[in-house]
């Protein structure tokens, strides 16, 4: 039963880690703009591919 002390302690620490992570993410501004990243994500691949295509068609 002594193990219970350990598991309770670990579970609390774990929960605390998630809390701190969340708080630091809020602080870093991750919850300020929740829309733009969803659009930005789509571009990053496209840009490299399409700009190559444009150059090819120019040649």
């Amino acid at each position: 039963m002594i193990a219970l002390y350990l598991t309770i302690f670990i579970s609390l620490i774990l929960a605390l880690v998630f809390l701190v992570l969340f708080l630091s993410n809020v602080k870093n501004g991750q919850y300020e703009d929740t829309y733009t990243p969803s659009v930005r994500m789509i571009f990053e691949d496209e840009f490299s591919e399409e700009s190559d295509e444009i150059e090819e068609s120019d040649n």
Binding site: E32, D33, Y35, T36, V39, R40
Partner: peptide, 10 residues
Amino acid sequence: ISHSEVNFPA
């Protein structure tokens, strides 16, 4: 210009 970042809603 080294970097630019848009906040669309704002």
